[in-house]
Design a protein around this nucleic acid. Structure first.
Lengths: 419, 419
DNA sequence: TGATTTATTTTAGCGTCCAAAAAAATGTTG
DNA sequence: CAACATTTTTTTGGACGCTAAAATAAATCA
C-alpha cells in the first residue's frame, strides 16, 4: 500500500538524497550536486543553506586540481559533509574479541580498537555492560565525547534478531539470546542496531560499487561458518526478524554430518573450515569437536597439502565445493539473483573448490537459471565488516535522522553546531 | 539510493493512494477516504474533483444501510471507481487450454472464458497470434471494444521471463522461449505483462488479507508442478528477471529421480503429482513418462487408497511430504518468512503429508528459525490465479498509469470519459 | 422555524520546487 | 585596463499540492 505524500516527504527525501550524494562522491560543487541529484540549482542553494546552517555540511575550498587548470567563469565552491557534525561507532563481535571503529560524520575512521574478551563463556547479562564500558573507556581515550555519538552499529557472526536486538545464536557465545541493543542503549543513551556479518559485507560491497551490486545479489561468506547477505532490489534483505540468510544452516543432506548448530547435514558442516578439516581427518569423524575453532595456520596447511597433491586434502575441498555448489544452486532457484559473490577468508581455497562448485551447479540447477547468473570472488579485507557497519549506520543518519531537518534531531544527535 | 522528490511525486502518490483505497474498501464517502488515507478533507475534495473529471471515479448514492439508520447532519455521498473508465484482461495459460477473464476498472469480472488450445505442440511463433486472435474474438462477443482495454496480465505455470516477456520454460509447452508479450502488444496495441502462477496466487492472498500477508510470506503452490510465490516486505518478489521461486526445481537430492526439467533430484520430482504417482508405481520407475499429465481422477484414487491404508500409497505421500518439508526448511533458512502458506490442488492431500512435512522441518531446520514461522494451508480456488492477475494488473493502472494524472495516460488508456 | 449536526467546499496561506533573471567572480580580448 | 565572455551561485516570482480554518450544504431535532 502506498503512503501519504506531502511537502514534508519531499523535503526529507531531497535532503536525504543531498547527503547521500555527498557521502558517495565526496566534496562537490553545488552545480555538480544539481546534476547528480536531478535537483535544480535553486533547490540546491536552498537545501545547502539549511544544511550549512545546521552544521551538517560546510564549504571547502575549490578543488586544487580543478583550480590549477585555468577556466573562465566564477570558480566553484565545493560542499562537504562536516566531519564535526557528529560521530558514529561500529562494533564487530567475534570469538574472544570485539573491535571498535569510531568514525566522524564524513566517514573518516579512527584506528580500529581490538579488545580481547572471553565472549564464549561470559554470562549473558554481563556482555552488554562490558561492551558499554569498553565503549566509554575507549571513546574517552580518543577524546570523543559520548554525547557526540549519534548511533552505534553492531555486527556479529551468527543469528542476530534485529527486532529484539539480541544475539539469538552465535559461535562466539555458549549462551543464547544475549541482549545487546537494549543494555547499550540504556547505559550509553545512544541508539543502537545489530545485524550479522554477512549483511554488513553486503553493505560494504554496495558502497564500493553501487551500480554493480544494487540489483539482486547474493553474497556468500566463507569462514568459520558460512553466511549469506542478500541484496534484493538494491537493499539488504533481513527477513521477518533479521534471520534471513542462514545459508550455513540450510540443510544439504538429511542425516549428514553433525553441525555446530546441533543438527545434521547443514551446508556448513561440509563447507565451513571445520567441516573441511573434519573431512580431511576422516578417521576421527565421530569424536571430532565441532565447537573447537580451527586455527588459521591449520587451514593454510591443509590448503598447501591440497595444492601439493595430497589426495585426502583435495577430496575434502572438493566435497566442500560440491556442497557449496548445491547450496548455491538452491539459492539461485529460490532468489534468481543477478550475481553471486563469494567473500571471506574461505575464498583463499576457491581454486581448490572451483571445479566441484561448477559441477554441482551443472547438476543441481536448470540451465535457464544458471545462464543468467554472474559469479564473482572478491578478495577479503578484514575491515569489510566494520566498513559495512559504518556505511549502514551513516546511511541511517542521512536518511532517517538528519534528513528530517527537525531541530530536535539536530540537537539531540549532533550535539554541537559549527559556526 | 533515494530518488528526487517534487510535487509531481506527491500528486502521483496521493492519487495512487486514493485509487488503491477505493479499490480495497469499495465505495467510500470523502470523509472516510480522508481517515483511511490520512489526507485532509480539502485534499480529498481536490483529488476527487480531478478524478471525477477524468472519469475514473464517480459519485454513487448514499449507502442504503447507512441511510436507513437515521443520523443527523449532511448525508455522505460515496465515491466509487467508475467501472466504465476502462477494462482489463487476465489470461491464464495452462496445459491444453487458456482462460480469459475480462474485468472493468472496478474489478467486476465477466464470466471466465475457457478455451481449449493444443499448447504443448504449438509452434512457438504461432502461440502469441493465436492468443491475440482469441482475445479479439471474445472481446467482440462480450461487447468489449479492444481500445477500452488498458492492460493485459498473463499468468503461466513455469518460468516466465518478466523482462523479455517470454515463457522460458513451461510444462504446457514442448518449445522454449515462447514470445508472448511482444506479439500481443504488437497485434493488439495493448500493454501486457507476464508472470507465473505462484506469484499471482500470492497477489490474490495479499488482496484477500492485506494485514496478514503483507510482511514476508512464502506461498508454496502444489499441483502438476511445485511453485513458489515470495512476498518480501509486502511486495511480490520476482528476482532479477522474474525467475525467482523456482522452488520445484530446487535440488533436493543430487542424482535423485528424473524431473520434468531434465535434471535429477529436483523437489518436484518427489512432491508434484507426477512424482507421487511415480513413487506409488515404483515398479516402473525407469520407464515412467514424466511428461504425461496426471489425471485428476488418478490422483484422487491414489489419495483414497492412502486414506484406506494402502501402504504403498501412504509411503508415496510420506516421501512427498518429507521432501517438501526439507525444501521448506531450506526456504525458511534463506528467507526467514513470517508465514509459509500451502496452496493449490495438491493441498487436498495435506493430511497425508502433514506428519512427514513436520518431521522433516524438525530435522532440517534450527529451532530458532522454526519457532517464528506460522504455517497455513489455504483452500484452493481455481480462480485464485486470474484473481491475482487482475489484482496485479489493476494495481499497475492505479499506481503507474492513472495516478500520473497526465492527459495522455487518460486518453490513451481509458478511451472514453463519463459525463 | 431555528438550532444542531455532519459532510463537503472554499479560502487563505505554507512549504517545496523550479525557470528565468540577476548577481558574483573569474578569464579573455582588443 | 575596460568591456566582454563564461561559469557558478543566488534571487525572484510563480506553480503546485497540502492543510487549517471558515463557510456552505443538507440533513435531523426540538
Amino acid at each position: 500500500m502506498l503512503k501519504k505524500a506531502n511537502s514534508d516527504l519531499v523535503r526529507r527525501q531531497n535532503r536525504g538524497l543531498f547527503l547521500e550524494t555527498l557521502r558517495q562522491h565526496g566534496p562537490l560543487a553545488r552545480i555538480t550536486l544539481g546534476h547528480k541529484t536531478g535537483l535544480s540549482p535553486a533547490s540546491i542553494t536552498s537545501i545547502s543553506a539549511q544544511l550549512i546552517d545546521e552544521g551538517l555540511v560546510y564549504s571547502v575550498g575549490e578543488d586544487e586540481a580543478a583550480a590549477a587548470q585555468l577556466r573562465r567563469g566564477r570558480p566553484l565552491t565545493r560542499l562537504a559533509l562536516n566531519p564535526r557534525a557528529t560521530n558514529v561507532l561500529a562494533v564487530s563481535i567475534s570469538v574472544d574479541s570485539i573491535e571498535l571503529v569510531f568514525a566522524d560524520f564524513s566517514g573518516a575512521t579512527h584506528a580500529p580498537v581490538k579488545l580481547r574478551m572471553d565472549t564464549y563463556d561470559i554470562p549473558k547479562e554481563e556482555f552488554g555492560p562490558r561492551v558499554a564500558h569498553e565503549i566509554k573507556a575507549n571513546a574517552r581515550k580518543l577524546g570523543i565525547e559520548l554525547i557526540s555519538i549519534s548511533r552505534i552499529g553492531i555486527a556479529v557472526q551468527g543469528v542476530a534478531d534485529t527486532i529484539t536486538g539480541e544475539i539469538s545464536w552465535s559461535p562466539a557465545f555458549r549462551a543464547r539470546d544475549i541482549p545487546v541493543v537494549k543494555p547499550l542503549e540504556r547505559i550509553l543513551g545512544i541508539p543502537c542496531s545489530i545485524g550479522n556479518n554477512a549483511n554488513m559485507i553486503a553493505e560494504a560491497l554496495i558502497a564500493a560499487d553501487r551500480k554493480k551490486y544494487s540489483g539482486n545479489t547474493a553474497v556468500v561468506f566463507l569462514g568459520h561458518g558460512v553466511g549469506l547477505g542478500l541484496i534484493l532490489n538494491g537493499v539488504v534483505y533481513g527477513g521477518a526478524n533479521g534471520r534471513a540468510g542462514e545459508f550455513g544452516h540450510m540443510n544439504h543432506l538429511p542425516d549428514g554430518p553433525l553441525c555446530r548448530c546441533g543438527r545434521h547435514g547443514c551446508l556448513e558442516a561440509f563447507s565451513a573450515d571445520y567441516g573441511i578439516v573434519r573431512m580431511a581427518n576422516s578417521g576421527q569423524t565421530h569424536d571430532f569437536d565441532v565447537h573447537a575453532a580451527v586455527r588459521d595456520e591449520d587451514m593454510r596447511g591443509l590448503e598447501q597439502a591440497a595444492e601439493a597433491g595430497d589426495a585426502i586434502a583435495i577430496n575434502a575441498f572438493n566435497r566442500a565445493g560440491e556442497v557449496l555448489g548445491f547450496g548455491i544452486a538452491r539459492l539461485i532457484a529460490l532468489i534468481n539473483p543477478q550475481q553471486v559473490v563469494l567473500a571471506g577468508p574461505g575464498t583463499r581455497a576457491y581454486g581448490l573448490m572451483k571445479d566441484s562448485i561448477w559441477e554441482a551447479l551443472r547438476r543441481g540447477l536448470v540451465h535457464d537459471l544458471r545462464k543468467y547468473v554472474e559469479f564473482e570472488v572478491v578478495p577479503y579485507g578484514k575491515d569489510m565488516i566494520t566498513t559495512g557497519t559504518l556505511v549502514e549506520t551513516l546511511r541511517h543518519l542521512d536518511r532517517d535522522v538528519f534528513a528530517t531537518g527537525q531541530k530536535s534531531a539536530i540537537v539531540e544527535f549532533a550535539g554541537r553546531k559549527i559556526a
